[in-house]
Amino acid sequence: MIDLESVGVAFDEFTAVADVDLGIDDGEFVTVVGPSGCGKTTVLRAIGGLQEPTTGRVTIDGRSPSVAQEAGDVGFVFQQHTLLPWKSALENVVFLRKMADKPPDREGARALLETMGLDGFEDARPAALSGGMKQRVAIARAIHLGADVLLMDEPFGELDEITRDELGVEIRSLWRRERKTIVFVTHSVPEAVFLGDRCVVMCDRPGRIEATFDIDLPGPRDTESLGSGAFQEQVAAVRRTLHESYD
């Protein structure tokens, strides 16, 4: 359980986030959407222990985020893949477990790479991989850590639309199998609706939660879902909320 109570974050005279209350259940897939600068990443960093709240508090299963992170119970996937260029894809996947003093599982890592469409690329270094492949490795690395919580900060932001759709399907598939708690930040409304079982809409001046939507789409979701009437209706509802917040 992730719990944010009256969380605010200020930088000198600038208030980035104010009065954020949010509870996320174990195994839930929550997306956070909003315009650039609305505090989405700040909230994610507060959840992960990378940003100390100015007011309020954040807990993960009753612990501070920093304690949960030190225990290897929180994994991150950023927009930049942050892979180690001198290590192979397989070595990058097992690296975080070694750093967290957890025994690496090379066969499990190989299976994850295969699931992510990287069978045959285990020994390739990042320079030999496309942008989408690098992000697949980064996602596999975070999952292999064995963390109960995955925090994803616009990990598809630099990818083309087709690759984003394919990775979205793969993430949903992995989530159904692993049942990790995922918090996924994006500025794309369709992406937020497609991925999440709950979508949190943020607005700025200062950053706050404007609304939350329970996403009800028939599953399992695939690229065909993107053209469904139910999907389009929920995308429209989220967009209306974003536009109305600026009226």
Rank of each mutant, 00 (worst) to 15 (best):
D3K: 14
R172V: 12
D222Y: 07
V67C: 03
I24S: 00
L83G: 02
R45A: 12
A89H: 01
A142Q: 07
I215Q: 01
T163P: 01
A18M: 03
V201S: 08
V93A: 08
R177D: 13
R106Q: 09
G207V: 08
L90P: 03
G39V: 07
P218V: 15
I182R: 04
G39W: 03
L150D: 00
R208F: 01
H81M: 12
H187T: 12
G196H: 14
I2Y: 03
L129E: 09
A100H: 10
A142N: 06
K180V: 14
V77M: 04
P190T: 08
M116F: 15
L129F: 11
A111F: 03
F184N: 05
V93D: 05
D222C: 04
R110I: 03
E13A: 15
L50P: 00
E233D: 15
V149W: 01
I162G: 01
H187D: 08
M99P: 04
L129V: 11
V30H: 05
R164T: 12
I209N: 06
D148A: 15
V200H: 07
P85Q: 12
D19R: 09
L174Y: 09
T42V: 15
R97G: 02
I2S: 08
A111P: 04
L4A: 11
R172I: 13
G219Q: 14
A147H: 00
P103C: 06
G34Y: 14
R240E: 12
G48Q: 10
R136H: 06
E91W: 08
Q51K: 03
S130D: 11
P218S: 15
L150A: 01
V137L: 09
L151G: 00
V67G: 00
L151Y: 02
L150C: 08
L242G: 01
D153W: 08
K134V: 05
Q79W: 13
G72M: 05
E233L: 12
T241E: 13
R164A: 07
D26L: 09
S130G: 12
V238I: 11
E170N: 06
D19N: 14
T181P: 02
V74W: 05
W86Q: 02
T54M: 06
R141I: 14
I162T: 10
K87A: 07
V43H: 04
T181S: 11
R240T: 15
T41F: 07
F194A: 07
Q51D: 05
T15Q: 10
S173P: 01
H144D: 11
A109F: 07
E233V: 13
E52G: 01
N92V: 09
G219H: 12
A124C: 06
G219I: 07
G23T: 14
R63C: 05
R198M: 11
D214Q: 13
V58K: 03
K134G: 02
K102T: 10
K87I: 00
E233N: 13
I24M: 02
L151N: 01
L129G: 07
I139F: 12
R205V: 07
E28H: 13
A71Y: 01
V9D: 03
E28G: 06
D105I: 10
G34A: 08
F156R: 05
D19H: 09
D216Y: 09
D165F: 02
L50M: 14
A236P: 03
I47F: 08
T115W: 10
L145P: 00
Q51C: 03
Q135F: 11
S36M: 10
P126W: 05
D19K: 09
Q79Y: 08
M1T: 14
G227P: 04
D247H: 13
V43S: 07
T42R: 09
H81Q: 04
G75N: 04
